[in-house]
Amino acid sequence: MFARNKKDQFAELLHEMTVNLKEAADYFSSFSLEKPEDVTVFSETINNYESKGDRFVYQMIVQLNDTFITPIEREDILELTNRIDDVLDAMEKAALSFEICHLSKFNDVITKMAAEISGATDEIATAVDHIFTKKLKLINAHSKKIKQHESACDTLYREALLTLFQEEQDPIRLIRYKTVYENLEEIANFCEDVSKTLNSIVMKNA
């Protein structure tokens, strides 16, 4: 159950982690390629968000090691921390794949999948804040919305692959876009993993 005396430090750090995640996802979904070198700027910027996320993970581990009583089980805090970090890691991987695959523009599929991912991170940020304000009953609704965003990405991914293999004649271009689509789908899957961890926390503490 919740231990009020040690709540704030963990709540603040997890909040900062989700803000960083949300800012990364917003940048990811709003960025527009206008010239070839833009994709390098995009990749480097996402890498900066990921590096900042790694620093938050380190701070969380230090705080967990230094704190005897935690607001919820320390294993749950660490699990949630790691799952949030997984999303950022996957985002960095996807951004790097854009650079490696020499994308010259973001097509409709990429734009739509990125928007769904951004929506999922919105829900993650709100749900995580609810943990430490004792609004656990509200978390499930946000988890369902995360799953809806993931399902939308899954649909876009399947449809994009179908179209790609039916219409693309250039094998190199096919491999490039297949790689990009797979990496975007992976981000959405990691968002769903966050929702599963949130649901587990609700079950343990409701």
Rank of each mutant, 00 (worst) to 15 (best):
I46W: 11
D89V: 01
N47L: 13
F42N: 03
N65L: 08
K144M: 13
D89W: 04
M91R: 03
E34Q: 14
D154M: 10
A90F: 03
D26S: 08
H102M: 15
E37R: 13
A94M: 13
C101N: 15
N199P: 00
N183L: 09
I117R: 05
A94L: 11
V62T: 07
T18L: 07
A125M: 09
E186K: 04
A125Y: 09
M1Q: 10
I46H: 02
C101S: 11
F106I: 03
Q169M: 06
F98N: 01
S200D: 14
S200T: 10
L88D: 08
A188I: 09
L184D: 14
K93H: 09
I187H: 04
M113D: 11
E192F: 04
Q9V: 03
L161T: 00
I117M: 05
I146S: 08
V202C: 05
F10L: 11
I175G: 00
V39F: 14
K137P: 10
I77G: 02
E150N: 12
K144W: 07
S118P: 00
L103P: 00
E99S: 11
K7H: 12
G53S: 05
T163C: 00
F28S: 08
R4W: 09
K137Q: 14
L64K: 15
L138Q: 15
K105R: 12
V194F: 05
C153D: 15
L103M: 08
L14R: 10
D85V: 10
D54M: 04
F106T: 02
K145C: 01
K134M: 15
E116G: 01
T197W: 00
T163E: 02
N140H: 15
D86Q: 12
D8S: 08
N20T: 07
E34M: 10
M203P: 01
C101E: 14
I124D: 03
Y27L: 06
E186Y: 15
S195A: 12
E12H: 10
F56C: 06
S200L: 10
F165T: 04
K93V: 03
K93P: 02
H142S: 10
D38M: 07
F165A: 05
T111E: 11
I172V: 09
I100C: 02
S118D: 07
K144P: 01
M60H: 14
A24V: 02
S200A: 09
C191L: 14
I187T: 09
L103R: 06
C101F: 03
A3D: 10
M203G: 03
L136R: 15
T179R: 12
A160G: 01
M113W: 01
A11W: 11
Y177R: 04
R83P: 02
I124N: 10
I77R: 12
I61N: 12
L162N: 02
V41W: 09
N205R: 13
D8E: 14
I146M: 07
N82E: 12
N20M: 05
S195N: 04
T40G: 03
N107W: 00
N205T: 14
T67W: 07
Y181C: 02
D26M: 08
S118R: 06
T81Q: 11
I84K: 06
V39H: 15
T121D: 04
K145V: 08
Y157N: 11
L174E: 03
A160S: 08
A188Q: 13
G53F: 05
Q169P: 00
A127C: 09
Q169G: 02
S143R: 14
T197E: 06
E23N: 13
Y27P: 00
Y157E: 07
I146R: 11
V180R: 00
C153L: 13
